[in-house]
Amino acid sequence: MRTPLYDEHIAAGAKMTAYCGWELPLHYGGILAEHVAVRRRAGVFDVSHMGEIYLSGAGAFDFLQALLTNDMRRLETKPWVYSPMCGESGGTVDDVVAYRHGDGFLLCVNAANTEKDFAWIRQNAPPGVCVENVSDSFAQLALQGPAAADVLKKADLSAVLLQSGTGYTGERGFELFLPPAAAPKLWREMTEAGAQPCGLGARDLLRTEASLPLYGHELDEDISPVEAGLERFVCFEKGNFIGRGALAGVRPPRRLIGLTAQGRAVPRAGCEVLGDGVPLGKVTSGCFSPGPARGIAMALVTGEAEKYEIVIRDKAEPAVLTGMPFYRRAK
């Protein structure tokens, strides 16, 4: 599948890659240059592959409260709320951003999970709640970086249906939903105003530095949001929700930790983590972080250790426990 910005990507010289059935830009020449553009100025990402599911009807709010782990009453004071969505066993079905939209709620879901989520939500929806997969009705742009607000001011936002101060990079920024046909014009306005087109490569690097979870890595059907360090998005006080029984009062043995490699080899997802020489778990995401010029990794481990190592190409490479996020923007 192609997003409405496919021709813009090709014209900008993108190296395209396959992701969840989509042809998306991996980079436009250099991942590190795009990374630095977002950290210092502004970058724009085509995230039109993300799925959108719309909930409406009289019982939509109560259903949302039961479906998601976070407290949706937060939508009374802010236009969007991030939340994991759990199964009965406490494993994570997906992590989503919920928006108030029209008379209902729009859920922005991971591209890889759109069909699965749609089936899960429909299966759990009570009579009277209408669940629609409206992914084809939306393109989505993420404008990120310290200069994002300046770029936004220079763009014509009249076609934008929904806008939030969210992102997946650790920088200030905006995510904008708009009709697919209107996306190329806004994309061009943003790039002409100085936003660097950025691909999936930079996106993964930026989100790993910001320690933001990626479904399929830090979260999946067998990993609970509590294990992934997302307990602040699980609200037990709000009442019942799917997965509550499995999550409440349980201190899981596994937890997500941050590690910084001391050598120059780069840890990658799947690498084994050793604690005092004993296997503790696996790296869920790893990348080269340009700031420290070292590899960084998130890892799901059991127990604690004095000395950590990551096995990279059969060699145990020393690593140090690092507080997350690895990168925090200056206030």
Partner: peptide
Amino acid sequence: LGDIVFCE
């Protein structure tokens, strides 16, 4: 490969 960050 793109930006190379390690060689051994």
